[in-house]
Design a protein around this nucleic acid. Structure first.
Lengths: 169, 169
DNA sequence: CAAGATTGAAATCTCAATCTTT
DNA sequence: AAAGATTGAGATTTCAATCTTG
């Protein structure tokens, strides 16, 4: 190979594993959601991030950041979700250049219907494999990576609310 | 939100960080490669995985596994790469139902040209952020995840050749 | 002019169907 | 009939262009 000459053995290991995960996990979760819920992985998280917000509403920009998608990508996805009656969009009362997306009751129901099988897939593919020590290792190792990839104002959303493992802090 | 009710605080932290990484890192690397090399992230790794193999050749199935893509996805990408003169495909002399893809000299040159800026991006986005301890934590925490996502016969490709951190093993 | 958002076209990816070889 | 691979159509994503508001 070419690239690993620039990486140490330990770095190569991390990169191969990260590449494997990025290359396979989203696709497997996507296939499960398409089959069982008729939603893409991205669309599912659009609904999920709205359900989590005050008034079940967010501006398109916030929602794009929360779902890790570009604004055009979100806009197209929102059109489809809106056509299905799962969300509505309206101009913000305050600054009329921003659009507020809101999850409808039907959208909330759709999310609740779709969640169990998705959560089961996440459990099966991810958390069933990980010990408590693995979780701790990943939380600390992944944090600086994740923080580097999103705008600073969103970094605090990554914080783990309370720390467990009484011994380590 | 709905889903995190099924996840512990520690699991939620891992999931948010993993989601952030999967949602942003491939896209950022993709954009860099498109701009600087006219290649997608996936196409780059098709070239890279071939350059790494004996005779610079692999069967399409092996190559699909190595690049973490489906066979149809690889087949389409190979058509484009072949049209550019960067790889060739030929029926295997042995079993004529398998196709062997081979990196051409032009393809090798293309990879060498494209590698520096890509590696720089990987360094900037990933390894510049990680301490030696982070690397160790990630290598052990990510291994069971990555192993669960690929067919068993490919798992040993994830092994780190030599173990670092003399103290920990 | 920058920020927020949408649109349409081009590129890419997924899925199902197909073809050949074992 | 299963394994290896390709194809084409439909769906999704990206990029550039556009529109509106601050």
């Amino acid at each position: 190979m070419i690239e690993p000459e620039w990486l140490s053995a330990s770095e190569r290991g991390v990169w191969l594993r990260l590449h494997t995960i990025m290359g396979n996990l989203p696709g497997q979760l996507d296939a499960q959601l398409r089959k069982d819920a008729g939603l893409t992985f991205f669309e599912y998280y659009v609904l999920a991030m709205l359900s989590d917000a005050p008034e079940r509403s967010r501006s398109m920009s916030d929602l794009a950041a929360a779902t890790h998608g570009s604004l055009p990508r979100l806009s197209h996805a929102a059109s489809k979700l809106e056509a299905n009656g799962w969300l509505t969009r309206a101009l913000s009362p305050e600054s009329r250049r921003s659009t507020i997306a809101t999850l409808t009751d039907a959208g909330y129901d759709k999310l609740r219907e779709s969640a169990p099988s998705h959560v089961a897939a996440v459990r099966r593919l991810v958390f069933d494999r990980l010990s408590a020590d693995d979780l701790d290792a990943l939380n600390s190792g992944l944090e600086p990576l994740a923080a580097a990839l999103i705008p600073p104002q969103y970094v605090d959303q990554l914080k783990v609310p309370e720390s467990r493992t009484p011994g380590s802090a």
